[in-house]
Design a protein around this nucleic acid. Sequence first.
DNA 1: CAGGATCCTTGAGGATACTG
DNA 2: CAGTATCCTCAAGGATCCTG
Lengths: 126, 126
Amino acid sequence: MKNEERLDKGECKLRILPVQDALEILNGKWKLPIIIALLHGVKRFSEISREVTGITDRMLSKELRDLEMNHLVKRTVYDTFPVTVEYTMTEYGETLKDVIGALYDWGSNHRKKIFNFEKEEEKVNS
Amino acid sequence: MKNEERLDKGECKLRILPVQDALEILNGKWKLPIIIALLHGVKRFSEISREVTGITDRMLSKELRDLEMNHLVKRTVYDTFPVTVEYTMTEYGETLKDVIGALYDWGSNHRKKIFNFEKEEEKVNS
DNA sequence: CAGGATCCTTGAGGATACTG
DNA sequence: CAGTATCCTCAAGGATCCTG
C-alpha cells in the first residue's frame, strides 16, 4: 500500500508537468481564441481582430508574435500597397485541434450545467 | 461565396465563445494542476501542496475555493483534532478528464518538438 | 494541519495616439 | 492596412507571519 501511494504520487507529478508545459504556451485570455479563428482559415490582421471580440490591436499583435515564435502560426507578408499580411496555422499548430475540441465540448456543456446549478440553489434558498 | 464567408465568420465566433467560457473557469497557473492531483484520488491540503510543485498555501487555498464554487471540487471537513479536511473531485469535475487528456498529450508531444526546432535552428545558424 | 491576514511585486492587459 | 509606442490599471501571484 505504501508503495502504491508513492508510485501514485510520482505519477501524479508526471501527469502535471506536460499540462503545465502546454499551459505555458497557451496561457492568457487570447491565444486560444486567436488560434480558433485561424483554424477557420487564413486570416488577415483586421479579420482576426473582428472575429476575436474584445481584443485590442496591441494584444493581438503581441499574441501573434508569441504564437509565431512557438511555431504555431505563420506570418506571410505580401509586397502590395498598402502591405498585406496573412496569418496561417502551421501544420504543428493544427495539432492543437484536439485540445480545442475538448475545451469546446466542455465549455458548451458548462453553460447548461450552470443553469441547473442556479436552479438548485434557488430551491435551497427558498 | 459571400454567404459562405459570412457563415464562416459567424460560426467562428460561435466556436470561440464556449472555449472562452471554459478558460474563464480554468484560468491561471494552478487550477488544472490541482485538478489533476485530485483526479488521482482524494487528497488533503498538504498532500495537494506537495504534489503541485511550487504553489503557495495562499494560492492553493484560493484556487480550491474557486474550484469549489464552480462545483468542480468538494471539500469535506472531519471533526477530528486537529481538524482534517479532504478534497474530492465532484462527478462534474471528472468531466474535465478529456480536456486534461488532450492537454497532456499535446504537452508531452511538445517537448520533443521543441527539441527538433532547436536542432533545426542550430543548422540554420551554422 | 489547514489555512487566513497582510503586504508587495510583476506583468497581463486596456486606452489612446501615431506611422509607413 | 497592419501594426508600434506610451502610459496606465488592476489583479494574479508571491512572501511572510499568524492562528484555531
